[in-house]
Simulated assay, not measured.
Amino acid sequence: MLILSNADVRHVLDGEEEAVLAAVRLAYVEHERGATAVPESLFLRFPDNTRDRIIALPAYLGGAEPVAGMKWIASFPGNVAAGVERASAVVVLNSPDTGRPLCLLEGSVISARRTAASAALASATMPGPGPVTGVTVVGCGVINTEVLRFLRAVHPSLREVAVFDLNADRAAAFAGRCAVDLGLAATVVTDLDTALAAHQLVSIATTATTPHMDLSAVRPGTLVLHVSLRDVTVDGVLAATNVVDDRDHVCRAATSVHLAEQTVGHRDFIQSTIGELLAAGATHPRSGERVTLFSPFGLGVLDMAVANLVFHSARARGLGVDLPEFLPERVPAAG
């Protein structure tokens, strides 16, 4: 049993955006092929507490190198005020042959980067008419930091960021990190509608639990990466061209897409999944007349794909703590 810390995971993944993007792409294609098993996520919630939750995402990823396992991820937004990261996670990988656990990994970096890679992959797959030079980020946390990192990997032309957050200090600090860590010119925008109209690529990653944004300020032809899933109103969803990662998974847990389905009684407003687009090959230019809304629920197979990448690389580099006696001793064969 190999145990990999946050530092071990970062050591493997830092600077490996292309490898993560390739792993996420492959996971989406395998999912579209039916070579995965992705049970519904299980949400552990607490009495009289609608904000905090811990989510279990089990998954099996088939293909040339099958892997199974689960991510167990906590989201406690109140942590931020106490100087603690909102999300914490662990990932366990199991052998698909024996079921025995192979590796326990700190999962917050894996979760954030697979989420960011998913968003960046969508932006590369559904391009606009010209190079991406600017992006708007709504929400100045870890996820949008990683989204920018991966957007730079798929859009080398990216130069500018319009930054919006309800917390002015957080927005200012985020803008500073954009310049220092990513080499991007960042401008803090204090009005949400102005921020939404600033660029034709928008990434939304907030802790909102109820829809508050109808996208009327977003220019036609814009791609909105709706990473946090619960910001856009039903009217905003229904007015957009909708692409998701999985129709069944995204239509649950009171996501904006789920609320839209409940309102109209069907899912016909979902035009495609990212897996369908990737499996079809090439790119799929988005409409210039409508907003395109990408709402990824976050499939566990993405965590498995990136965790498996980390596991094999860490093993080859001698990283982590190996506990050969973690599991019971082998039982002698009968007879």
Results as ranks from 00 to 15, higher is better:
234 V>I: 15
211 P>H: 03
188 V>P: 12
246 D>H: 13
215 L>N: 05
205 A>I: 12
263 T>E: 15
197 A>G: 13
182 L>R: 01
176 G>E: 14
186 A>H: 03
213 M>H: 07
222 T>N: 06
190 T>D: 14
273 T>N: 07
230 R>K: 15
181 D>R: 13
175 A>F: 07
204 I>Q: 09
211 P>Y: 02
266 H>V: 05
247 R>L: 12
173 A>K: 13
193 D>C: 11
202 V>F: 01
213 M>N: 15
258 H>L: 07
219 R>G: 00
236 G>T: 12
231 D>W: 13
172 A>W: 00
212 H>T: 12
181 D>Q: 14
201 L>N: 06
221 G>L: 09
243 V>Y: 00
254 A>K: 11
262 Q>T: 09
266 H>N: 15
178 C>I: 07
235 D>M: 09
198 A>Y: 09
211 P>F: 01
204 I>Y: 07
172 A>T: 13
271 Q>H: 14
228 S>L: 01
179 A>R: 14
223 L>A: 08
222 T>Q: 04
180 V>F: 05
254 A>M: 09
259 L>M: 12
270 I>L: 10
228 S>D: 07
241 T>W: 02
227 V>D: 09
199 H>S: 03
240 A>Y: 03
265 G>L: 05
194 T>S: 13
257 V>G: 08
263 T>F: 14
239 A>I: 00
205 A>H: 12
233 T>E: 09
203 S>I: 06
211 P>R: 05
209 T>H: 14
176 G>A: 10
174 F>P: 04
241 T>C: 12
174 F>Q: 00
209 T>M: 15
188 V>Y: 13
227 V>E: 07
187 T>V: 08
227 V>I: 15
181 D>G: 04
252 R>H: 11
195 A>Y: 06
209 T>S: 15
256 S>R: 08
222 T>W: 01
184 L>K: 10
227 V>W: 03
204 I>N: 12
196 L>P: 03
190 T>P: 04
246 D>L: 04
204 I>S: 13
264 V>Q: 11
213 M>A: 00
262 Q>W: 02
174 F>H: 01
255 T>S: 14
223 L>M: 02
203 S>H: 02
199 H>N: 11
264 V>A: 07
245 D>I: 12
180 V>P: 00
233 T>R: 10
189 V>I: 11
253 A>D: 15
273 T>H: 07
250 V>Q: 01
206 T>P: 10
261 E>A: 15
188 V>L: 12
208 A>F: 01
196 L>I: 02
186 A>F: 01
208 A>Y: 02
211 P>Q: 02
265 G>A: 06
186 A>Y: 03
212 H>A: 12
220 P>D: 04
208 A>G: 10
224 V>C: 04
186 A>L: 01
269 F>G: 02
188 V>A: 10
183 G>P: 11
273 T>P: 10
264 V>Y: 08
265 G>R: 03
178 C>K: 04
250 V>H: 02
246 D>V: 05
256 S>Q: 08
267 R>H: 04
202 V>Q: 02
211 P>W: 00
210 T>H: 11
